[in-house]
């Protein structure tokens, strides 16, 4: 596991939320964030300037069965 990254994640959680790493499972799960970061990097540039969360409800309606 990337101990430096886990320590950074722990510091972020501590500083912003006042929450400490609770156990070994949390350390393993925090290490998995590295893959998530890589996955996000691969998608960079996809977010449109006008995209916003409320569009999802409109998309649900738009994608209904025709008729």
């Amino acid at each position: 596991m990337d101990e430096i990254f886990i320590a950074e994640a722990g510091a972020t959680a501590r500083r912003w939320s006042g929450i400490d790493i609770p156990n070994e499972t949390a350390r393993q799960m925090a290490a998995d964030l590295l893959k998530l970061i890589a996955d996000f990097e691969a998608l960079r540039g996809g977010l449109g300037f006008e995209d916003e969360p409320a569009d999802f409800e409109a998309a649900l309606r738009d994608c209904k069965e025709p008729g």
């Binding site: 950074e8 972020t12 912003w16 790493i21 609770p22 499972t25 949390a26 799960m29 925090a30």
Partner: peptide, 12 residues
């Protein structure tokens, strides 16, 4: 432990 462990990364 597996519940708090799964919650934890969300704070980072």
């Amino acid at each position: 432990a597996h519940i708090s462990g799964r919650l934890f990364p969300g704070y980072a």
